[in-house]
């Protein structure tokens, strides 16, 4: 005999549901959203879609160079960011860091990186090194550090500290403790997060073009401004396919590692 099923906490469910409803209502009013208006104007969206169809395949060859640039930006961003995120993540992991002050400083540094959006970094670097792909690559490096270091420092905090202690016990240094004791336990996670960051970077490099940081996004912005929607559709299609392919490849690599 299993015990009787405990009764549901109805008051809590009702309060929660009412709260969510009220929040939605309040937000909808705030931005002037109305279901009626939305349904009336949906034809505008339909018109845009109709104008975007079919995608202009004759435009495809001219996308090759900007697309390669996007890929290059994403690769450089992932590699530089991936390398720099290693010390940032390690020092932000409570169990591995080199003292409270360093841990606290690094944590906050990481939080600042993550709080500021990739577009901000793109504008910053575009101002600093000039418009173009280099600014994009630098922006994505920072973005990659933010993504990988946050996720990976949490993986590092959850490792078993027995092995690092064993490395200490043979007389190993802090670096040797990291290399032989800590990092091998979190290596799979690191590769996973780096691949994930790469996917994000390919996607982000579309947006980066909007502020002049190079890549396929710059072409997208120009074509959109000229109302060339069939070309815009072609560009979106290319990025979509690229992201899907990258996802498939990284999924395969992750399976290999497991």
């Amino acid at each position: 005999m299993i015990p009787q099923r405990p009764s549901r906490n109805w008051p809590l469910i009702i309060v929660t549901a009412s709260f969510l409803l009220a929040m939605t209502w309040w937000s909808g009013n705030g931005i002037g959203f109305s279901v009626v208006e939305f349904l009336c104007n949906i034809s505008g969206g339909g018109r845009l879609l109709a104008e975007s169809w079919p995608p202009d395949f004759s435009y495809l060859p001219r996308l090759a160079d900007p697309f390669m640039e996007t890929l290059n930006i994403a690769i450089i961003g992932t590699v530089i960011g991936g390398i720099l995120s290693v010390p940032v993540a390690v020092l932000a992991a409570r169990n591995l860091t080199l003292g409270r002050v360093i841990w606290f400083t690094d944590r906050n540094f990481m939080n600042v990186l993550r709080t500021l959006p990739d577009l901000f970094w793109a504008m910053l670097f575009a101002t600093a090194v000039g418009f173009g792909p280099v600014a994009g690559a630098l922006a994505l490096s920072v973005f990659t550090i933010a993504v990988i270091s946050k996720l990976w420092s949490e993986s590092l905090e959850s490792i078993d500290m027995g092995l690092p202690e064993a490395v200490r016990a043979v007389g190993g240094t802090w670096l040797e403790m990291l290399k032989f004791g800590a990092i091998p336990q979190a290596m799979q996670h690191y590769v996973s997060y780096a691949l994930y960051a790469f996917e994000l970077n390919v996607r982000a490099s579309m947006v980066l073009g909007l502020v002049g940081a190079g890549g396929i996004g710059m072409i997208l912005e120009t074509q959109r401004a000229n109302f060339e929607y069939e070309r815009v559709a072609m560009i979106v299609l290319v990025v979509l396919v690229a992201v899907l392919i990258i996802e498939e490849i990284s999924e395969a690599i992750r399976k290999q590692l497991a």
């Binding site: 490395v167 043979v170 040797e176 032989f180 091998p184």
Partner: peptide, 26 residues
């Protein structure tokens, strides 16, 4: 407390860490 993903010999070499300069072990 072995490094499970490393070969046996590389695990045993960890015992040599303190005998070998750090730039080599890295």
């Amino acid at each position: 407390r072995l490094v499970k993903r490393l070969s046996v010999i590389n695990n045993v070499l960890i015992g040599r860490l303190a005998h070998v300069p750090g730039w080599r072990t890295m």
